[in-house]
Write a protein that binds this DNA or RNA. Structure first.
Lengths: 239, 239
DNA sequence: GTTTTTGGTGACAAATTTTGGCACCAAACT
DNA sequence: AGTTTGGTGCCAAAATTTGTCACCAAAAAC
């Protein structure tokens, strides 16, 4: 049996049985006592917390507190999780977000450094505020999932975004703006862009945007986006 | 150099440089061409998507789309993430929650089976609905993070929960109920318990609960909890 | 207090895996 | 046609892993 597979098997057995003696493990796994002891040692090196007790009724035991999961997530999935937690903050009451944050922080630490740089930069542009109760939400539509990667790409590469925008009256116009920030006023999500044609910032409700495209060769500089006082940068929320 | 370490190093180099030839990798890693080829093969077996091109200017390249992260999360952290996403659903507009779901599904798959059973059972009791706009939120308080594990433990072991409850007028009473369900009407969170003293279900706002304790030796049976029509079980939302 | 059970360590030869070198193939570019 | 670059099969050398054995320490049983 493969050494890696054997390690996994041992962990699985310990998880299932709770506790087990070295000899029992050796038998289940088809290896010698010595080898299993070496495996336990290796697993401890890998970060597993394994308690052991000598004497009758003793054995080794995986610390249930330290039970961990290793999941492979794509960068896009991490982004999505992060934004979910961000939105969750936006939705006011945040009972367990500290734990969620800790989980996300770990995930973030395991990302490749350049992706973390991108992530940080993206989160810098993310802002969260409270929607005023008077806001009319009657025509609230669904947000296309493809909008996030489109914005992310254009924002990170600092390229103009061209998209179709449907205004409150239903009229559609083709817009081309510098993507400068993103604003969540749950349940509304906005892109904040600098519109060169109008020489000013514009907010675009994401549920009214369609067909976004980054335009090659249209480098722009980042600008300071003015926000109302009650709008908080995401990075301020996370300290 | 250790084989495992070498694999990691190769991945790191590919992530940093984007693309590299086998010979260059072999040199950086201090191994032979043949070995690096074998490593690439092993990495592919492990799920890494590695493109390769022959000829001048060719080389191997990690698929940036498939770039993955491995993070070790504790079970509690996974719970917290899950609940965050659940709450996010409760907060209506869910642009990217599919991706977040996919990430969570992966995490869930990597949990030990008994924990998944617990998780499923817990999620079965989780319900999500819309708060009526007339609700008075003026006295909305913070929710103690310790409430989640307390409820979770008592719910899973089917033990009575005893806690202090502060009613709308501020009067505190000691309650002991069977924890039967959990309800999110964002931003309000509720425990739904069967109160044996009153022989009926009661809702308890989590921001009014303190000092929860599971009572040993008070096994109860699960009951069907009646909910309003617009309240949806979490598991219905996730299909 | 002696015996038994159980985790843990060191040493060394045997078994197994990994590695490097080599020959050689296929695709793509010059 | 020649060069660059990924990819495979083969085999002996190198390195690692494994099993055996002797032995230690702690805890429980007798």
């Amino acid at each position: 049996m493969n050494i890696r597979l054997r390690h996994d098997t041992i962990v699985r057995i310990l998880r299932r049985n709770g506790t087990s003696t070295i000899d029992a493990l050796a038998q289940s796994v088809g290896a010698s006592r010595r080898t299993v002891l070496r495996d336990i040692c290796a697993l401890r090196d890998q970060g597993f917390v394994i308690h052991s007790e000598t004497g009758r009724g003793g054995g080794v035991q995986l610390d249930p507190q330290s039970m961990q999961t290793t999941a492979r997530l794509s960068v896009a999935e991490v982004f999505a999780l992060l934004i979910s937690v961000a939105a969750m903050r936006a939705a006011q009451n945040l009972p367990f977000s500290d734990l969620a944050d800790a989980g996300l922080a770990k995930i973030e630490r395991s990302l490749p450094p350049d992706k973390v740089r991108d992530l940080r930069r993206f989160l810098d542009c993310l802002h969260i505020g409270q929607l005023s109760p008077q806001q009319d939400l009657s025509d609230l539509g669904p947000i296309t999932p493809a909008l996030l990667p489109a914005f992310e790409t254009a924002f990170l590469q600092q390229l103009h975004l061209r998209f179709l925008y449907r205004d409150a009256k239903g009229a559609e116009t083709l817009r081309e703006v510098e993507p400068q920030a993103m604003l969540i006023l749950s349940p509304l999500w906005y892109w904040v862009g600098w519109d060169p044609a109008r020489d000013d910032f514009r907010h675009f409700r994401m549920d009214r945007i369609s067909d976004p495209k980054a335009i090659e060769g249209t480098q722009f500089r980042r600008r300071h986006v003015p926000f109302a006082d009650d709008v908080c940068p995401y990075n301020n929320l996370t300290r």
